[in-house]
Design a protein around this nucleic acid. Structure first.
Length: 257
DNA sequence: ATGGTTGTTGCACAA
């Protein structure tokens, strides 16, 4: 069972890339972020034609998340963080087979010290408390998404720029991610790779992709109960080479299920 | 990064 996460940065623009990538990569489950589509505009019929059921929670212009699944029903769909009032559509969870899939579009946070940064930290706290209770109900869980946090120095191209006072790498953000991991959620990529310099996002500016000036901020976390079954993980750089790409590449994990 | 690029019921703002 191959499970992937991809921030498509507008599903309207990237739908041809998504179609191509579904054919190439053959994922069983995909969490999509930044669809930027209201629910009535979501291309569920088109995706069904490609063999994927979909559930989604979106809004125009910003945010928007979805879960796609092939050959398996999608059940128990939950949208948002219970008890956390938020107009921004950043969270969707559902059960696929016997795996609980939680798809997160983590707040970017703009800059350390801003109001958006404070919202990011509050939001991470709320996700932490929610997932702590969810894991008790659904021990077989994959939490994936655009985390907008690079876990450690191996996940940034230049630690002198991306340091403890910088957005996406600040100490408080990394502590927030570590608290999630401490619930028993393991970065599947790091279960199989120790190397630095494997990234999932490259800024559109400064020819960052060509120069591999990136960060690894798109993650697939597997719960304790699934850890031994996470047999392979990686980032698929290829869609980032295509014409008019998303700034993110798909991150994936393969479970022996 | 005082820079730069992409996306949007766009023309400023989010990333």
């Amino acid at each position: 069972m191959k499970i992937a996460s991809w921030n498509v940065n507008s599903l309207n623009v990237r739908l041809p890339h998504l179609e191509q990538w579904l054919r190439d990569a053959q994922p069983d489950v995909v969490g999509i972020q930044e669809t930027k589509l209201a629910d009535e505009k979501f291309p569920d019929a088109l995706l069904a034609g490609l063999g994927y059921r979909s559930v989604f929670s979106g809004q125009k212009t910003y945010n928007g998340v979805a879960i796609l699944a092939r050959d398996r029903a999608i059940g128990d769909v939950e949208v948002g963080i219970p008890g956390f009032v938020d107009d921004q559509k950043r969270v969707i969870a559902a059960t696929v087979g016997d795996v609980r899939v939680v798809n997160l579009y983590v707040v970017n946070g703009q800059d350390v010290g801003t109001e958006k940064y404070a919202y990011k930290l509050r939001w991470l706290d709320a996700v932490h408390d929610w997932l702590a209770t969810e894991l008790a109900v659904h021990p077989r869980m994959v939490v994936l998404g655009d985390f907008n946090i690079a876990p450690d120095e191996r996940d940034v191209h230049d630690p002198a720029i991306w340091h403890d006072a910088h957005i996406l790498t600040s100490t408080a953000e990394r502590d927030g991610l570590r608290r999630l991991q401490a619930l028993g959620l393991h970065d599947a990529f790091r279960l199989h790779h120790e190397d630095a310099g494997i990234f999932s996002w490259w800024d559109y500016r400064q020819a960052a992709f060509r120069r591999n000036l990136g960060l690894r901020i798109d993650l697939t976390l597997v719960s304790d109960a699934l850890r031994a079954q996470a047999i392979e993980a990686g980032v698929d750089r290829e869609p980032r080479t295509w014409e008019r790409p998303s700034d993110h590449a798909p991150a994936w994990v393969r479970l022996a299920l």
